[in-house]
Design a binder for these strands. Structure first.
Lengths: 226, 226
DNA sequence: TGTCCGATTATGCATCTGTATAACAGCGCC
DNA sequence: GGCGCTGTTATACAGATGCATAATCGGACA
């Protein structure tokens, strides 16, 4: 008659923390912060709610950990694209921009997760700092790639504004690409991003991005016109 | 002994609906969807929770109305900037971009409100349609202004991509400006937006935007360098 | 002025949420 | 092989939430 007790299974601390964080992120991405209740998180992670308190102390603490991991993961993926690409500055910049504008960075779940945590972030100075740190880290990488272009007569102050602008293009495309995935043809975000960043910097990134899969075919008039 | 009944006050239907929607938006903007409970909304609107059901049927219905009003209001404000400006295409485009990059459009509350509703929106086809409609309406206005520039040899397909790119710059600046307001000097977003949109379109909007308050003083090296 | 209709309020209720605490079970150690 | 330590589960609980319904009051209309 007893509702059969869950089998007792012992796991490592890292494994449990990871599972709980992954479950939290998945639930927030799918249904917003409201769907990420302690019971739902525990069920998806395959444990009972008590473990959340045991490993994180409270649900808020778990939320913070999940948000921090999201931010770190997003900025890491952009930087990862730089390894394994040539030394030409234009190529490196093009690879960086392209990597930021296709999955898994451009993803409905990631946008949803980020949006879901926006309020938590603003209310919590530690999380706000995490966001700012991630944002500036990404922008610094971008600004470094811009500086490496070696354009004569471009001051540092101007490069800062260019970095903000390029970052904004990428952010905006990331946002709408995640919210309205069907509104853009495959590869279109990458092409638009490369063209825009190139225009802002006065460099033809498309010409230097022939190694990028999205470049090279159907340069104009593809697919939907709206 | 009775906890003193709230004074009975009769109001028009429009007034009540407006008050409830405004209260909902304010609460979501401040503390996320979680803070917008029926009791909190009613209290801020100066009524009792029952009126929500009376006027909107359910809390979900009220949420939908609040989101729709946000979307309509945001796109309206951009279009409003076009009235009262000259007929020169560059001037009109510059005014439109500038209006989208300063308060009340760039505002922490607006970003928070939008983010708070992202999941509600995705789960509700009607709200998703409202978002898409608002987005495309805004982009169409932008594309119309771009087409009015009358640049020779620019095809319609290219103008679509330019409109997406310019929209992305504005969205990205709107986003970070709302999330990290202290990260940018006053007027910096407007200047960066005008410079970037101009670069993407191959037109010097700064030269045509002398009537814009943010233009004309401190063109370089102002304020913080990071 | 009296009366009735509807806007508004107050109360009740089932459900859910986060947390605290007690009970339990597998592993390592002697 | 018995036994404690601790990771894990189960239960309890106070408060919140959305919704339904009954009670009440103000004004319009005759």
């Amino acid at each position: 008659m007893k509702p059969d007790r869950r089998p007792y299974r012992r796991e490592s601390e890292d494994s449990r923390r990871e599972a709980l964080i992954a479950a939290t992120q998945a639930l927030v991405a799918e249904g917003g912060p409201r769907a990420a209740t302690v019971r739902a998180i525990a069920e998806r992670a395959g444990v009972t709610p008590g473990l959340i308190r045991h490993y994180f102390g409270s649900k808020d603490e778990l939320s913070r950990a999940a948000y921090r991991q999201l931010i770190d993961g997003m900025t890491d993926k952009g930087a990862d694209a730089l390894s394994g690409v040539g030394a030409a500055p234009e190529e490196r910049l093009a690879a960086f921009v392209a990597a930021s504008l296709r999955p898994p960075v451009v993803d409905a779940g990631a946008v949803g997760l980020w949006a879901g945590y926006l309020h938590t972030m603003r209310a919590d100075p530690a999380l706000l700092a995490a966001h700012e740190r991630g944002y500036l880290r990404y922008r610094d990488v971008l600004q470094g790639l811009i500086a490496a272009l070696g354009r004569p007569g471009v001051a540092a102050a101007q490069m800062r504004q260019e970095a903000i602008a390029c970052n904004a293009v990428i952010d905006g495309l990331w946002l709408e690409g995640g919210v309205l995935p069907h509104g853009f043809a495959p590869g279109e975000l990458v092409r638009i991003g490369l063209a825009s960043v190139g225009a802002i910097l006065g460099t033809d990134l498309m010409a230097h991005g022939t190694f990028i899969p999205e470049i090279g075919k159907a340069p104009a008039g593809e697919g939907e016109t709206r």
